[in-house]
Design a protein around this nucleic acid. Structure first.
Lengths: 209, 209
DNA sequence: CGCGAACCTGAGCAAGCGCTTAGGGGATGG
DNA sequence: CCATCCCCTAAGCGCTTGCTCAGGTTCGCG
């Protein structure tokens, strides 16, 4: 029973500090691990509770349903991702600097916290109607943030982009998919992937170099 | 230059011609639709059989388990995807032409047949141990095909690519993720997405233009 | 010491799961 | 006509699912 769940590769900011009380957080962390490993539908409430060292019934003291657990995870993750992109978009510097910054931090988050990101990005369809609508709204804001950087880069003559919406979509798609293939035991660190991807994206938008 | 769209007819009739008898094909097509909509684990054998107009028991006359159905789908899809990439890699022309050709046909397949592609690309983890190993081997061959084009382009002085394995990974990742976001009711045709992505990838490898 | 609130468990329910089994119906060959 | 084969279904088995509920333990506070 002395099993510590801290298999965290996180660096810096506390991962789930916004979730209280502590028992609810333990359940949520257990759910993230289970959902990322096997997918939402293949994960049982018994599995989640077991990983958190509780009985199945304990889950329902802190969350009304299994779907609500997924929603909390998804909501927090999307808030975080959106914050990263908007911070980069609003920072100073050239469009190229801001775009590289956005991609670097967004990708680094997807690699570093790929367990969470996998759930956040690939289990959307398991959400209920209303919850999914809420999350989709957040995703549109992410899209808008990236599109804004690219548009401003084009307007300033920094970028050469024939299809702004299409390129925005491709950039986000490229970054998001990091969560699918990234492996913590692999040879690349999150920082390296972030740097590589920032370079590739600058090439995609034809940034003057 | 001549794109062999002969066997790429759309819509769910020709693509599964290798599956016989007809009842087995109907079940498989129904399974593709169901898996793509709800995911493997959320799909029931009753749902699959119902879509094919049969009773649940009929499924087990043609397939031993639900997992075998997924494996057949995954195997056929991966064979097809690998064929597209290797055909492009082996065709004549410059590296840039071959890379553009590979991306164009690979992306078009993911968009045109996004229902199938979604199952093929995102339900790998539901496969059993041996079946997954077989599929992973096919995926490594896809990676090798793309890497070969890029390497040859670099060797010929056509491309400027600092990190060949990383860029190969990113190119494949970008293309595969089309299956996740592509929507048939959306404003882009598969051909348009293919053209856009071929252009973006040529920029990523720094092709002389 | 008592009391209530917060937290958790053991036991279990109704529903749904993948899969099996016994047998029916229609075509084919004698 | 019967017999055989294939394809299919109705019924259901054993098990697991998400979730519930009555009751127990621990705590702060008087």
């Amino acid at each position: 029973m002395s099993m510590s769940t801290a298999e965290e590769t996180d660096g810096g900011s506390a991962p789930w500090s916004e979730v209280t009380p502590e028992a609810a957080r333990r359940l949520l962390v257990a759910a993230v691990e289970a959902f990322a490993e096997r997918g939402y539908h293949a994960t049982t409430t018994r599995d989640i509770a077991g990983r958190a060292g509780m009985s199945p019934a304990a889950l329902y003291i802190h969350y009304r349903t299994k779907e609500e657990l997924l929603h909390r995870i998804s909501r927090i993750g999307h808030d975080r991702a959106l914050l990263l992109l908007e911070t980069a978009a609003d920072s100073g510097g050239t469009a190229a600097e801001r775009l590289a910054d956005a991609v670097r931090s967004f990708v680094r988050w997807h690699a570093e916290r790929h367990t969470t990101a996998r759930v956040v990005q690939y289990e959307l369809e398991a959400l209920g109607e209303e919850h999914r609508a809420e999350i989709v709204a957040l995703r549109r804001k992410s899209d808008a943030a990236v599109r804004r950087i690219i548009s401003e880069g084009v307007a300033a003559g920094e970028f050469d982009v024939p299809d702004i919406p299409g390129t925005t979509l491709a950039v986000l798609s490229l970054c998001i998919d990091v969560a699918r293939w990234f492996n913590a035991q692999g040879s690349r660190t999150p920082d390296e992937v972030g740097a590589l991807y920032a370079d590739l994206v600058l090439r995609m938008v034809g940034a003057r170099r």
